[in-house]
Amino acid sequence: MINRLWNSLLDLVYPPRCYSCGKAGTQFCPTCLAECIPLTPPQRPQPLAADSPLERALGIYPFQGSLRAAIHAFKYQNAHPLAQILAPLLFDFCAWQNVVLMPVPLHGVRKRERGYNQAELLARNLAKAWQLPLSTDLQRVRATEHQVGQQAQARANNVAGAFEWRGQQPAPSHVLLIDDVLTTGSTFEACASALIAAGSTAVEGLALAKAIIKPASPLDSPE
């Protein structure tokens, strides 16, 4: 009760502003929220190699525009309340039953620096809305470099062996990994490898947004 009153007073003195357009009143205004148009079903899956440990990896919205700005704030600007606005963007895309939701984990050092794991906040909201169990027993046991800006192979090398199942054996049979952004799928695959090794039989990945990677142009080739 005291926290709610304090937050209300803060909102009166320092009204929240949309992290995308700056409009006062909310952290993600209705206008910017309305700009979040889901990808068509054929655009959502990330192509995976035949030997991938993942069953599939899906990103529901394009990682661009107002959603990109909101996710950036969610991850890097301590805008953790955005989880309650962003998670509902996924509520209509539940086609899973008998799965355990599992957020992609942060390494302990980075989680302490940030104060929270944005994927876990999304997963907790989804678990509540979908009435599915959630586990945080998948752990990131090796600190890794940021994936942003790295090419596909470098991304895969960066997260290889970085995750480990620390829960009861075996790991849940069917797992749905949750993350904020899907780019190449390498993080999902590294998580899936750890889960399969611990006894999972099917692992899928679901991300709020999917990076749209444009094919390289010949003009982009180095001389």
Rank of each mutant, 00 (worst) to 15 (best):
S135Y: 05
R44A: 14
Y14M: 08
K75C: 14
N125K: 01
A127R: 03
Y14I: 03
S186H: 02
C191S: 01
P222K: 08
A209V: 00
V109E: 14
A209S: 03
L195W: 08
K214S: 07
L9F: 11
A83V: 02
R17M: 04
L5C: 06
W6V: 06
Q64V: 09
A202V: 15
V159P: 00
R142F: 05
C94H: 04
K111D: 03
G25C: 04
W6Q: 07
L82R: 10
A216R: 13
D179P: 12
P133C: 01
A123L: 08
L138N: 04
P47W: 06
A34Y: 09
Q147D: 07
P30V: 10
Q97L: 12
R44C: 10
G167E: 10
R112M: 05
S8Y: 08
T31S: 05
V141C: 00
A162Q: 02
R56E: 01
A127S: 14
C21R: 12
I2C: 11
V104T: 07
L219P: 01
S200T: 13
L106N: 07
T184A: 02
P215D: 12
T201G: 15
R110K: 10
T201H: 09
G161A: 00
E189C: 02
L48F: 12
H72N: 00
V100G: 12
T187P: 12
I178R: 01
Y61K: 07
A119M: 11
A70R: 00
E55T: 06
R114T: 08
N78R: 11
G59V: 00
G185P: 08
P222T: 15
A129G: 14
S200A: 13
A129R: 08
P41D: 11
E204N: 03
A49I: 15
F163S: 11
L177P: 11
A192C: 01
S193C: 04
V13D: 13
A197H: 06
A127P: 14
A143Q: 08
L10E: 05
F93Y: 08
N117E: 01
F74L: 09
E55C: 02
Q150I: 01
Q168R: 10
A162C: 03
R142C: 09
G185I: 15
D51H: 03
A202W: 09
L48E: 06
P88W: 07
A162N: 07
H107D: 00
V181F: 04
R112W: 11
V203F: 01
A69L: 05
R4M: 08
A95N: 14
R155T: 03
C94F: 10
F74H: 05
T187C: 01
L121K: 11
P103D: 14
H107W: 00
W96N: 05
P81N: 00
I212H: 10
N3L: 10
A34R: 15
P103T: 13
P38V: 09
R112D: 05
E35N: 09
S186L: 00
E35L: 08
L5S: 02
C36W: 07
V148F: 06
N7R: 11
L5V: 14
F91G: 02
Y14G: 08
R155E: 05
F188L: 04
L9G: 14
L5I: 14
V109N: 15
G65W: 03
W165C: 03
I85K: 12
D179Q: 13
A152I: 09
I2G: 08
V99A: 02
